[in-house]
Design a protein around this nucleic acid. Structure first.
Lengths: 121, 121
DNA sequence: ACTACAGTTGAACAACTGTTCAACTGTAGT
DNA sequence: ACTACAGTTGAACAGTTGTTCAACTGTAGT
């Protein structure tokens, strides 16, 4: 939402270390990269979605079973699965009346694993 | 918020694969672990906080300069720094009128780096 | 064709989150 | 003691987010 510019308007500071600020500005990633990054983490920043990811970590599961496991309605789970789908974190496969969801790749597993290490300290 | 139980109340499914669900239930992490994990990612899931982390990645900065760099008010930055402090993602050091913030450790850097790899695909 | 059920979807609602604003604390300089 | 300014803080507000509810789609079985 916020966009930082060459001559930031909102800063009311007097004693700015202009040289440092300018140097850092060059080193900062693109605005879009920062948004992509925080958007990615936003997906993982919900306990329901985190639970779903762990549930299907051991193998694909249908919506019904995920809902049963988490003690939630199919609707609530389906809404969250949609978000996970749109972020390409999960894949799905229709077989008859069921839709089976699975983890899309190992990247996410690694990231969550690293975060777990960080937390346990 | 949601707590899953041995006999989930909210699931209205008929065709549940009970054996799979029970097996997964045993393999699931503790409820508290899931919350800690998603809470951690929640912190990284905001572009302002992500920007701040990148800003101080190159070395400690005072609140004023961070605000100038991001084009935000000191107040807004300070509020986010408080959250980052409470999560032990940053450290701070007072010198005179300024407060310099720095990254707490390398863990976070690694996680963000891994997420970046994931995004660029 | 009809019924049953897994899954999806949009609207509505409540809870949460980030920024703004104004008031405040504390340090430095005069 | 006074002024100036960096930084913090709580309340208020607007925007966002997750769950619920009800209606819907599509497939399987009869």
């Amino acid at each position: 939402m916020k966009v930082y510019e060459k001559n930031p308007p909102a800063c009311e500071c007097e004693e700015v270390h202009a040289d440092i600020v300018e140097k850092r500005r060059d080193e900062m990633p693109d605005q879009s990269t920062l948004y992509d990054l925080s958007d990615f983490f936003k997906i993982l920043g919900d306990s329901t979605r985190m639970s779903i990811l762990y549930a299907i970590d051991g193998g694909s599961m249908c919506v019904c079973d995920i809902a049963a496991l988490l003690g939630m309605t199919k609707s609530a789970v389906s809404h969250q699965l949609k978000i996970l789908r749109q972020s390409d974190l999960v894949t799905y496969r229709k077989t008859g009346k069921n839709v089976f969801y699975a983890l899309a790749d190992d990247h996410v597993r690694d990231i969550i694993e690293k975060a777990l290490e960080h937390i346990k300290e």
